[in-house]
Design a protein around this nucleic acid. Structure first.
Lengths: 239, 239
DNA sequence: GAGTGGTCTAGACCACCAA
DNA sequence: TGGTGGTCTAGACCACTCT
């Protein structure tokens, strides 16, 4: 692990444990250089991570302040989490289950071809999966994987964590994701599986996940009821 | 302007103009060092910005690839824009107007006190404003400013751009924002001003904007009809 | 003016990828 | 094995804030 990541981790722990209390100032960068035996550029890089996380805020001449934001106890999910719901809710005491509703392989329609950069004759897995948290139906996921990238997918995989299979067994690495959030009306699937009423608004998160080599790995639409979940975005100004 | 920002700007222009075509490789960092007369750390910093923007992707040993994502022609807004709709849509050919629906000063209720870190006796401006794009009602904003931070606000300000007044005349600087996106049912305001039907879903972006010194500047809820706008989020994995 | 963070350099070593 | 990007250093200069 890189030195700057190690330092960021230590500092993050100190902030979260309130060893550095909210609204106080962090030791200045020169002191941190001494404590960690690092160069100032490295310290700066560590601080930058915490700043992007919204934990601290630095001003020239004035020092680095520990921010006191009550963001962390929300029941909303950070919008930049992925790796699946399993990862997002890991560590909480929630019980997570999955139910497979559709699992089939088919040829992609135009929209899927466009999102996943496929030809009409390259088959995709089509999966509809219900995620259940604490015995409550929570999210309905419509997911497509190109079959040549995720070979030999089975229904077992989708009932546990698809991402363990993809990252672990296949050794694929994520580069990032592009998401779009919107409100929509409920469809028959939502009404059937999420117990949504006909005039209930739904929140839909549409995403394409990309691999490090640039190939799209997944197109999905995750739908949940308006009263069950929101998405949070933290935006810290670069300067 | 910092050197690394200048370099990032030049490279961004070259990518957008396809001087560096999509899917090709950027010149390697050593060559860029020569061209720009900068150290490699500075080049790296510039590249890092473009990577966070999702324009390029670097891999150890393999070079830096120009990504070709058709994200930019969406009619959705990036979720991390602020400074107002005026800034977001500047440069497009849209006609933007504002209509002031409510403009008053009052004492904050508990929710507003909590969001803006105020006492019950510190007054706030309460503003409800309709944003009209190309003659179509577009967004209904419910906004609160602490009166002691944004003194002497007038109805004129809110009809042009509040942010020009805040940034320019008052010299206040933004540190960042915390947002929450959710779907909700339409309320009477939406029905009256956005022409929403009773069972139309709405997309609501709730946000608190913070100043550089840590004080909350604004709490707002921006509502728009489900069929008018979505929010996009680009998430590039750090490593 | 003293103290802070932001940037920049020149060079170094290492991890990773491709041929 | 050679070329690439990722990290790190030690020192320097500058911009800003505070008082």
């Amino acid at each position: 692990m890189s030195k700057y990541l190690e330092i960021a981790k230590v500092l993050r722990d100190r902030i979260k444990s309130e060893y550095y209390p909210p609204d106080s100032l962090l030791p200045n960068q020169v002191d941190l250089v001494e404590e960690f035996g690092a160069s100032r550029m490295t310290i700066k890089k560590a601080l930058n991570i915490l700043a992007l996380d919204g934990l601290i805020y630095s001003r020239r001449g004035a020092g680095t302040k520990i921010l006191n934001r009550s963001f962390w106890d929300k029941d909303t999910s950070p919008a930049d989490e992925y790796g699946g719901l399993t990862a997002t809710l890991a560590g909480s005491n929630k019980k997570i289950e999955s139910e497979s509703i559709i699992f089939e392989i088919e040829f992609p329609d135009e929209k899927i071809q466009d999102k996943l950069l496929l030809n009409p004759h390259q088959p995709v897995y089509k999966i509809i999966r219900l995620r259940i948290v604490d015995d409550e139906p929570f999210i309905l996921e419509h997911t497509y994987f190109p079959a040549h990238i995720v070979p030999n997918l089975t229904e077992d995989h989708i009932l546990s964590s698809i991402y363990d299979y993809i990252k672990g067994d296949l050794g694929l690495k994520f580069a990032g994701a592009f998401r779009n959030v919107q409100a929509t009306k409920s469809d028959e699937w939502d009404q059937k599986y999420l117990d949504a009423k006909k005039d209930d608004p739904m929140l839909e998160v549409e995403q394409v996940i990309y691999l490090k080599d640039g190939r799209p790995l997944e197109y999905s639409r995750a739908r949940n009821r308006y009263d069950k979940r929101g998405y949070t975005i933290l935006d810290v100004q670069q300067n």
